[in-house]
């Protein structure tokens, strides 16, 4: 489904030191440094896999997700999702993927959620029959029937996240990218979201790529973990591979970060 080979990406970032004098100096001269966000990344993800993509902040997680979703063009390397190169065939590619950013909403704030759904139907040109079928299925499983008529601003975070997930699945994507899907949710909502993702994966064979800092998400969902640090893949294996004893998942990951010095 997803093939990534030797992906590289470098950014130029302005260096800025704190302080009053430095600010004056920066007025006339600015220094840049190169950040190797991705330094040769390769992996391959099969159809219907659920993968946890983890790593500390600034490790290159979001660059990878941006490349996979067609937002960012890499400097070099190959990447195909369902046989397409995301940044070359953007429009055809994005029809096949769904993206949920945990901290950003794609719902219209002031109108009932169903209006946002209707709009997405037009944006993705979803045939009426498919839309109806998907909507009723999602409404049932995510228990949305009572909230779709409510404006998004009046929903709780958990309710909203359920709607966000539904919104990104209306067009039947083959791949689902989840960026911190459970951030800020209460325990009940977290469980509901996790259950749903698992179910979606089982019933539709949707490939799921999950980035999160919440290790319980990983434990519940991901059969496979890819750990990235300093732009490189440090580890690619199953959860059981990395866990030696029966210790807590957070400790395992902390241990890993320490081991790889990231």
């Amino acid at each position: 489904m997803i093939e990534v080979k030797d992906l590289k990406k470098t950014f130029k970032v302005a260096r800025r030191e704190a302080g009053f004098g430095e600010a004056v100096k920066a007025l006339f001269h600015r220094e840049y440094e190169l950040i190797h966000a991705l330094d040769g990344i390769s992996f391959s993800i099969g159809d219907g896999e659920m993968v946890g993509y983890i790593g500390p902040n600034g490790a290159g997680k979001s660059s990878t997700i941006k490349i996979l979703s067609g937002i960012l063009t890499p400097d070099s390397g190959l990447c195909t999702v369902g046989g397409r190169t995301p940044w070359k065939e953007r429009r055809a590619h994005v029809k096949e993927i769904g993206v949920v950013f945990g901290q950003r909403s794609q719902l219209w704030w002031d109108v009932p959620v169903i209006d946002s759904f209707e709009l997405l139907k037009e944006i993705y040109t979803i045939p009426a029959g498919t839309y109806k079928k998907n909507l009723s299925e999602l409404t049932e499983i995510l228990d949305l029937s009572k909230i779709v008529k409510t404006p998004a601003r009046q929903l709780s975070l958990g309710q909203r996240m359920r709607c966000e997930i539904a919104a990104s699945l209306l067009h039947d994507p083959k791949v689902l990218f989840l960026d911190e899907p459970t951030i800020g949710l209460d325990a009940v909502s977290k469980l509901a979201v996790r259950d749903f993702i698992k179910r979606r994966n089982k019933d539709h064979g949707t490939t799921v790529i999950l980035t999160t800092h919440d290790m319980q998400d990983i434990e519940a969902l991901a059969s496979r973990i890819i750990l990235i640090g300093k732009g490189r893949i440090l580890l690619d294996g199953t959860l059981d591979d990395i866990r030696r004893g029966g210790e807590h998942i957070d400790e395992t990951v902390a241990e890993l970060y320490k081991k790889f010095d990231v």
Partner: peptide, 12 residues
């Protein structure tokens, strides 16, 4: 005031 001025300077 100093903070403000430094911030302003950054936006040359």
């Amino acid at each position: 005031f100093r903070l403000r001025f430094a911030m302003g300077l950054q936006y040359r």
